[in-house]
Simulated scan of single mutants.
Amino acid sequence: MKHIVYVSQAEHPFSAWELANLLETSRARNVSDGISGLLIYRLNPEYNRGNFVQAIEGPEAEIDSLWSRITRDNRHHTIVVVQEGSIEARMFDGWSMGFKNADAEDLAGFAGFSDLGSDTFWSDISPASAAGALELLRNFYDGA
């Protein structure tokens, strides 16, 4: 199996309806493709900018196909892969797409937290800083 964890910037701040629509579509497709994962959305009101963090996992061919759709999706841009590779077991087993609409208070207490809405996040990100990205996402989701 394969996994990818990435961050991206929303093209515009997403409404609750847009997020619900995105999840409904994604979850249905993920179930049929054997993909599991987690999506976190955060609106930074200071910059009026939304950001996504997503982890996807599943069979390699299906992940590659999904990744192709993700990178062509015009609802977001500035896509940065923070972790990618093979996995032996799923971290998000049974989650067609776990979801959290996060705010700063939700995130600030977690070790390794970086403000995805800040300009410095995009200049400081590197693959070396992504160690443990899946575990951070899982701990956040489990603790939130």
Rank of each mutant, 00 (worst) to 15 (best):
D124S: 05
R29S: 11
G58S: 08
G85Q: 10
S36L: 03
S65K: 12
N44A: 06
I79T: 06
F99D: 02
M97D: 11
D33G: 00
F121V: 02
F113L: 09
L43D: 04
A16N: 10
F113K: 12
V53G: 13
A133W: 06
E46Y: 08
K2L: 15
G94Y: 03
S123K: 13
R49I: 00
S126E: 07
M1I: 10
H76Q: 08
E84M: 00
A128V: 10
N21P: 02
Y6L: 04
A102K: 05
P13W: 09
M91I: 09
G109K: 09
T120L: 14
E46H: 10
Q54R: 09
S8V: 11
F140S: 10
S32T: 10
L23K: 07
Y47M: 09
E18L: 02
W17M: 12
G34E: 06
K2R: 14
W17E: 15
F110R: 04
Q54M: 09
F110A: 08
G94M: 12
E46A: 11
S36Q: 01
V53F: 14
N101L: 02
D124Y: 08
S126A: 14
K2G: 07
G109M: 05
E57V: 02
Y47I: 01
G37I: 08
R90P: 06
A130N: 08
R72G: 11
I40D: 01
L39H: 11
M91D: 12
I35E: 03
M97R: 11
G58V: 06
L38P: 11
F99A: 08
N21Y: 00
L136I: 14
G85E: 03
G58A: 04
N30S: 14
N139M: 15
I35F: 04
I63Y: 12
W67G: 07
R49W: 07
N44K: 06
F110D: 11
Q9H: 04
G112N: 01
L43E: 03
Y141T: 08
M1D: 07
V31H: 12
F140N: 02
D33W: 11
S96I: 05
L116N: 06
E18F: 04
L22W: 07
G50K: 04
N44W: 03
E57M: 03
L43A: 10
R27V: 13
E60H: 13
A130C: 13
N30I: 12
V82Y: 07
D142W: 03
N74Y: 07
L134R: 12
G109Y: 03
T25F: 09
E11I: 11
N30D: 13
A55T: 14
D142K: 10
W17Y: 12
V31Q: 13
F99S: 03
I125N: 05
R72A: 09
L107R: 06
Y41Q: 14
H76E: 02
A144P: 08
R49V: 02
G50H: 07
V82K: 13
H76K: 10
S68R: 14
E135P: 01
A144Q: 07
F121D: 00
